[in-house]
């Protein structure tokens, strides 16, 4: 399936802003992924050919970076940090609670197709440890006990709106912008304990 006209325009804008076409490859792959949540092989080929580049090295790029997905992912990609600052604050318990709640398959996807669970390394928000990335947003500090409530908030946000990824209907077009998910507006009901002890 060909890329949407808006995505093609975005790739052309990126190409024009950069001195060489090869530099546009990574940002263009990200733009293409933004449209449907992940990068099928034919999409990678389409992006590379738009830029006049060989598709094979483009595929090598897509498989290197953790934020580029060469397999379908859910509407929400949850990347839970496991690095030392989050580990010291109990990230393993949070990960276990997410696993128990989502029952992900071997690809990390929940059965309803709404969530993909990824275990990530330090995301640079250690004062809010333990934390995770939910698509574009950082959420934390998390608590294993409130993970079911956190996921319920995310499910409610997706209700009624079009979603992308595994659940998406390609004919429906890109998912609407839900607006930023920030700690304070997403999880108001959770304890806002920012100063510890």
């Amino acid at each position: 399936m060909a890329l949407a006209p808006e995505t093609i325009a975005e790739i052309e804008r990126i190409r024009a802003a950069l001195p060489e076409a090869r530099s546009a490859l990574l940002p263009s792959l990200k733009a293409a992924q933004g449209e449907r949540g992940w990068l099928p092989q034919e999409t990678i080929k389409e992006v590379a050919e738009m830029l006049g580049l060989d598709p094979n090295p483009a595929y090598m790029l897509a498989t290197f970076y953790t934020m580029l997905h060469t397999e379908p992912v859910g509407h929400y990609v949850l990347e839970v940090c496991r690095s030392l600052p989050c580990y010291l604050r109990g990230s393993d318990g949070v990960t276990e609670a997410l696993r128990a709640e989502l029952q992900p398959d071997e690809h990390g996807n929940s059965a309803d197709g709404l969530f993909s669970l990824k275990i990530g390394e330090c995301l640079g928000d250690c004062p809010h440890a333990p934390m995770m990335r939910v698509n574009d947003d950082f959420v934390g500090p998390l608590d294993a006990a409130t993970i079911p409530e956190t996921l319920a908030i995310l499910r409610r946000r997706a209700e009624g709106g079009r979603v992308r990824g595994l659940m998406a209907d390609p004919a429906a077009g890109p998912a609407p912008n839900e607006g930023p998910l920030t700690f304070s507006n997403a999880i108001q009901s959770l304890p806002l304990t920012r100063v510890r002890d």
Partner: peptide, 12 residues
């Protein structure tokens, strides 16, 4: 001077 914000994609 032109400044371009080049976003990575997850790699230490």
């Amino acid at each position: 001077l032109e400044v371009f914000v080049f976003q990575g994609a997850g790699a230490y």
